[in-house]
Design a protein around this nucleic acid. Structure first.
Lengths: 105, 105
DNA sequence: AGTATTAATCGCAATATTACGATTAATAGT
DNA sequence: ACTATTAATCGTAATATTGCGATTAATACT
């Protein structure tokens, strides 16, 4: 992408964009919704649920974890993922603020 | 990206991801915030405000317009862009619903 | 110790995104 | 008609993303 120009923007602008990017994939939305449904679960179950390969799902989980949107807890051979509800809450509040700016007069 | 696998996901999941992608760039956040500040303005002013080239800004505007997040009105040689507040409102409601799912118990 | 299971990582290919300069098309002003 | 202004588009380069198979590392179970 040529050069990324994050230095042109405020930390808040970069933060919002980063969060948006983390959820800007249908598979990641599907993963989050699945985690809500089952409350928490292991990677293998997500692979079965969504029709993507194990390595691909693992990468998506990594991206979500990078942004602190989900947490992964090792349970022996398996890893139990769950939504970081506190982070989710702060994202919801942040986005609501921003969108209110954009939508209100 | 190998092959995009949108067919694996629901229309809603794809829609949310698309909207998120549209705002998943700090320049586009900055553009929207600037449009809020000045209420409406022409492309050239945005180019001056943000430190990116005219062609790059034009592309970002195109992406935002593609998702119906902004509207562009031709005024002679200039084009006046403004936020589509109705769309913004529906996005805010949609995202709030989704994030509430993710954050509440 | 040997095998099975699980998930992370590596390496690769295909495609998308970001950015810019140059060009183009369209209008406005002379 | 000529020129200036504006914004879209084209072409291109650099980089990121998405996806998969293969491999690896780590634990659990014989």
């Amino acid at each position: 992408m040529g050069i990324s120009k994050t230095e042109l923007f405020t930390p808040e602008q970069n933060e919002i964009a980063s969060i948006a990017k983390a959820i800007a994939h249908p598979a990641r939305i599907a993963i989050l919704q699945y985690l809500v449904d089952v409350n928490s679960c292991v990677c293998g179950e997500i692979v079965d649920e969504i029709g993507l390969s194990q390595s691909t799902i693992s990468q998506h989980l990594k991206e979500l974890k990078k942004m602190d949107i989900i947490k992964g807890e090792v349970e022996g051979v398996k890893v139990c993922y769950c939504i970081n509800r506190q982070k989710m809450d702060s994202i919801r509040i942040l986005f609501n603020q921003i969108f209110k700016q954009f939508s209100c007069c």
